[in-house]
Structure formats: C-alpha cells, structure tokens
Design a protein around this nucleic acid. Sequence first.
DNA 1: GCGACAG
DNA 2: ATCTTGTCGC
Length: 303
Amino acid sequence: MDLYSYFYDLVMQIPKGRVSTYGALARALGDIRAARACGVMLSQNPDPPRIPCHRVVMSDGSLGGFTHPEGIKRKIELLRSEGIKIENGKVKDFSKVLFEDFKTDYPLKKLRKEQEELRKKVILEDAHPSLIGGVDVSYSSRNAYVALVIMRDGKYEVIGEKMRVDFPYIPTYLAFREEPIILEILKKVDDDILLMIDGNGILHPRFMGLATYVGVKNNVATIGVAKSLLMGEVREGKVYIGSQLVGQYIQSGRKKGIYVSPGHRITLDSAVRVVKKYLKYKNPEPLRLAHIYANKFRREDNA
DNA sequence: GCGACAG
DNA sequence: ATCTTGTCGC
C-alpha cells in the first residue's frame, strides 16, 4: 500500500482559496493517530506547489510549519495569493475556508481490518528453526537500508539491501512500513529461520505488531524486541494487555531494559530464552549487529 | 494541563 | 527513526 501517494492525492483535493488541517487529513486516511505522519509527509512534498502543502494548517487556524528556504513567510505569501486572509498568524474566517470533505475510502481502516483478520492465523507454538538471525532498518528520508544478520557458530554473516519506502511511520501501523522491506531481504535466505525483529510481536492493540505480521505473512518464526512500551501494563516483569500475557520485560544491567514478545511460531517462554541466550549488551547480538550494519549501509550510501 | 503512540 | 561532539564512566 503506497500511503504516500494516497496522501498526496488527498492533499491535491484541497481547493484554492481553502485550507485543511493535519487532523482532517489523518481522519481522511482513517486514523487521527496519523496526524504527525501527515506533517512528516507534507515536509517531504515531492512536487510543490502542485501538491498544495501550503494549504494545510493547525486545527486552531494557526499556520503550523513550512519546509522552505524562506520558511513560513512563503506559506503566507502563497495562501494570500489564493485569497486566504491571515491575521496574527492565524487564518481569518477559519471555519468558512476549512475544507474537510475529502473523497476517501479510509485506507488505514482497511489496514486495521487486515491486522484483525490476520490475528486468527498467529501460531504461538515452537517451530524450532535451524537458523537464527536479526533484522533492522535504518532510514534517510524515503530510503530504507535493511540489514539481516545470521548467526553461525559464534560467527555471523550480513546481507544488506536498499529500498524506497512508501509508508510513513504511524504508531501501531509500523508493520505496513517495514514488512515490505524485511520481505525483500528474506527472499535472499532460507525460510527455516528464527528472526528477531526491532518492534513488537503480539504486544500490540490488535495483537499484530511488526514481528507477528512479518511472521504470519511469510510463514517464518519471529520474536519482537522493543526498546519502549507500546501499550499494556507491566507487573513483575510480565507485560499484560488486559488479562492476556503478551510479553516480558528484560533488564540486563541497571539501564532501561527491552520488551520481548512472541511474533509467530514461538512461545513467549522460548522467545525470552532465545533473547537471553544472545544478551551481551542491551539488545541481543543479532539485533545489535543488524542495527550497526543498517546504519553503516545508510552512511556509506549518503557519503 | 492532559494524554503520550514500537520504529 | 533522524538531527549531532565531545565527554563522562565502567
């Protein structure tokens, strides 16, 4: 799903002489949580002012930001040239010129449904794959650099790949940003692998975090390893969503720990055991190395 | 001021 | 996630 293109098409619906808001665009995408992602995508406008990002303001009528050498001054010029009156940094008669009537089929709503459907296919039993690895992705604007580290008797091998991303980061929709990227690199290796992934497994509002999504879609065993808590309550190191046990908080030193949750084809206990086995620093080795290499690939490409 | 959301 | 240098500490 190319959410960037979908989003820019929405922005192009805002007529001259009208303005819309980050929140209205997010609702047109299907989830108000995407409001900040809307701001990010506007800042990356590939074709201004044909895609009229200058017509998007804050929900109180104040102007918001504008990524341009001349800054907000240029946004004001453009809006005034289209007949929008601006006083004290705010759009005058805001409610009269506000455009919210987007023609849309709410793509994020459909993606939520997909997550809920896929939930039925999650298997939380051990598959005992023969290989173990970790994947991580590093970004530079819309370029993604992915590294897959495969552990082999105390040593490891690394595979890298560069890709264009077509989906922004939106909380609880991370899978739709990173799964296509991870899939590309998975094609290059044996399926019989246990993959550690930066992000959550079933520790997710729809029990379908990145690790679980990657696992179910590609029939591969996965473990989710997150550095911060997306949701749920932690009691005695165990993470619950309501009464359901979905993860484990693991602290190695005295610093902040990690949140481990099963992705697919593994139990929570096994996931915790495997992660602990590779725990030398805060992150398990396959992930720590994948992180380092993904960053290295990005730097080398942008040098 | 509240709420706060992986990467 | 990215933007960013040196510096403190094990």
